[in-house]
Design a protein around this nucleic acid. Sequence first.
DNA 1: CCGCATTTGTACGTATGTATG
DNA 2: TCATACATACGTACAAATGCG
Lengths: 138, 138
Amino acid sequence: MTINPRSHTPVYVQLAELLRSRVESGDLPPGASLPSESHLSQEYGIGRDAVRAAIALLRAEGVMTTTKGRGTWVRETPRRSDAELAPGGSAIARMPSSRERREMDLDEGVPVLEIHSPDGEVQIVPADQTRITRPQSA
Amino acid sequence: MTINPRSHTPVYVQLAELLRSRVESGDLPPGASLPSESHLSQEYGIGRDAVRAAIALLRAEGVMTTTKGRGTWVRETPRRSDAELAPGGSAIARMPSSRERREMDLDEGVPVLEIHSPDGEVQIVPADQTRITRPQSA
DNA sequence: CCGCATTTGTACGTATGTATG
DNA sequence: TCATACATACGTACAAATGCG
């Protein structure tokens, strides 16, 4: 698979699709590291900007994670633990603010769940580690 | 409030914080339009890159939305309708793939909810329009 | 319908800062 | 200390969408 600079689809989207398909096919399993930005830049003959944009796209989807000075990896999704929704309770999902992301140490592309108890208490938890459930019988 | 190019916090983060506080204070209410990128670039004496990075940050948080050729606005959050979680059902939140985002016409920074019925049916809905609930009494 | 100005999107280059090992 | 890799930030240029006259 190659990249066509004259296609109507942007170069960085093409690279993102290419990498995504490699992840989905299992060629790049969770935990696998990506070549460096400059390597990808040279390998595909595109600017480093385009490489960074592609990776940023995948990070925002929760597919990749990047550490400064080290590199980029296919994200390993953590196991989800069940959170039982209390009778009369509710929950919403949203993206965290920058501060919340920092304080909760969340990867990019990870939403949070706001779980509201009937008594007014609010709990904010990482959405990638949580599954909201309701038991069969009350 | 101004921007300090020699601060240890990146210029684009400073601008994002500045704009976020203007949103939170009500100075930029939902629906308000931002000055153009070149305008902000000149007003604060920073590069257009930095302006775009700041706005991208706020888009990823679901605070702003941008239309090519038109501009950027403070996002108006839609009303949430209640989705009652069935007994034995569950729900998770995650970011949509690019394709899902396109097909469901979702803004950046909007997660999706996967609602699983006990019979195995899966429903994918925009998280910004949905509130998961459980009634008081079964 | 056409052309124009405005605005955002893409893509390149360069330079320097900062984290990691 | 050093090489590597990602982050920030400036610049330029052109493409593409929009709205208006």
